[in-house]
């Protein structure tokens, strides 16, 4: 059994980087088994395709604009995930949507796919999250840890696990 937690976004555009920062915090605060790969994908495209191969569970974390309160976290599963990314496609754009489509085309789609989307507030050039999105990120990290444990991966908190 293998899992991938993939954060995507741009660290230089405020809340846009929440996916990358979530993955970084997850890897720092928890000890993950070797079967769980934790990757900061940035804004990369096809480099990510090989990471999807041979995975049972793939969890994506990204900023997701859906006109909700800033910091709101939504979860999308399975076939609805590519559709969420489809919202942004125009001719020949190679982003995560195309990576998922290429995975579909080459039969390497993971058995279980989840997207955690966090509603951004601040998309100005600069490093760091707004307080609302920071709170959303914390909520996401807890949800991802719970989900990984639910799948049967052994995820250990480094130090004292105070939040549970």
């Amino acid at each position: 059994m293998k899992a991938l937690v993939l954060g995507i976004g741009n660290l230089l555009i405020g809340d846009e980087g929440v996916g990358c920062l979530a993955v970084e915090a997850l890897g720092r605060r928890y000890t993950l088994p070797p079967s769980v790969e934790c990757v900061d994908g940035g804004t990369a495209g096809f480099e990510l395709l090989s990471m999807l191969a041979n995975k049972d569970h793939v969890i994506l974390i990204d900023a997701l604009r859906d006109d909700r309160e800033p910091g709101t976290v939504i979860m999308v599963e399975g076939e609805h995930v590519p559709r969420a990314f489809m919202a942004r496609t125009t001719p020949h754009q190679l982003g995560i949507c195309d990576v998922l489509a290429a995975a579909q085309l080459t039969d390497i789609m993971p058995g279980h796919l989840t997207l955690y989307g966090i509603e951004p507030k601040q998309l100005e050039v600069g490093i760091g999250l707004s307080p609302e999105v920071e709170a959303g990120m914390e909520k996401t990290i807890r949800a991802v840890v719970n989900q990984l444990r639910h799948f049967g991966y052994e995820v250990k908190r480094n130090g004292i696990e105070s939040e549970h």
Binding site: I8, G9, N10, L12, I13, E16, G42, T43, D62, A63, L64, R65, D66, D67, R68, T72, V73, I74, M75, V76, E77, H80, R83, A84, F85, M86, A87, R88, G95, I96, Y116, G117, P120, L123, K139, T140, A143
Partner: peptide, 19 residues
Amino acid sequence: CAIHLVDGKKTPLGKVKVL
């Protein structure tokens, strides 16, 4: 300059769960 935000406004997202 890459901006990578998912924009749900253009197409409804389908089935989502709010945490």
